[in-house]
């Protein structure tokens, strides 16, 4: 079992600078949808972006987390806060 806060926290901890919005799509703590915006995605193919997320939950997807639907985004450079630019 997992919850949205745990999933969000783990994604953001694994990908510094990332923001994740996670929802429990059915309300059963088992099917989740995550929209992840991360600077690490820049220049990667979708499959590579998703793999970065899958790695965080290795062994749990399809098991204790039945489904994690993922949408990946690269942060919009224009609107990125000053602090995030290094």
């Amino acid at each position: 079992m997992a919850d949205t806060v745990e999933i969000k926290t783990r994604i953001e901890a694994a990908l510094p600078g990332a923001t994740a919005e996670v929802e429990d799509t059915v309300g059963d703590s088992n099917h989740f949808r995550a929209v992840v915006t991360a600077p690490q995605f820049e220049g990667l193919s979708r499959i590579q972006q998703h793999k970065l997320i899958n790695e965080i939950f290795e062994g749990e997807l399809g098991g204790s987390i039945h489904a994690l639907s993922i949408k990946t985004q690269v942060p919009d450079k224009e609107s990125a806060p000053e602090a995030a630019r290094t």
Partner: peptide, 22 residues
Amino acid sequence: WPTIPQLFVDGELIGGCDIVTE
């Protein structure tokens, strides 16, 4: 890739349902 379905085109993994739909 941990989940099913998995779509391959020309020998390469394209993705699962989310990526295919997107």
